[in-house]
């Protein structure tokens, strides 16, 4: 099943509805559900959807997942997922919280080198996008 076919799938559209509802759900536990189920999915399209949803929530916890965690968001193994997340970060109207998380990630000594490197690259792009 290619990318076009999956987007016409009934169950995929149901997942889209669920993920979109978790973006606007006022309950902070919505982030936990997105992290636990969406970012750990084996399907690239679902991970992409989830990473975008976490960026759109624009909260400290959700942005930390897509910026600072290895294998998720901008650090995803799939180039499509990583690039989509970066694009979504650049599209944010209020980039203040994202910049704060990026600065913290770059300054952190506990994180993996590739995570810090990715954060530094995204910060450069964010500075250009202002």
């Amino acid at each position: 099943m290619n990318n076009t076919e999956i987007k016409t799938n009934k169950n995929y559209n149901r997942i889209v509805d669920i993920v979109d509802s978790l973006i606007i759900n006022p309950n902070p536990e919505a982030i936990d559900v997105l992290e636990e189920i969406g970012t750990n999915s084996s399907i690239d399209e679902v991970r992409e959807l989830t990473a975008k949803a976490l960026v759109k929530r624009n909260e400290t916890k959700s942005l930390s997942i897509v910026i600072s965690q290895k294998g998720k968001g901008i650090n995803d193994m799939s180039t499509v997922v990583a690039m989509s997340t970066i694009n979504c970060l650049l599209s944010l109207e209020d980039k203040q919280e994202a910049m704060k998380i990026l600065e913290e990630t770059i300054a952190s000594e506990d994180l993996a080198e590739d995570v810090i490197e990715n954060a530094r690259s995204v910060r450069a792009l964010m500075n250009l996008s202002f």
Binding site: D20, S21, I24, N27, E29, A30, D32, V33, E36
Partner: peptide, 15 residues
């Protein structure tokens, strides 16, 4: 659908 789902509990219903 999204508006309807957004009113439900994330852990017990949505998950």
């Amino acid at each position: 659908k999204v508006n309807k789902l957004s009113k439900l509990d994330p852990q017990t219903v949505i998950k």
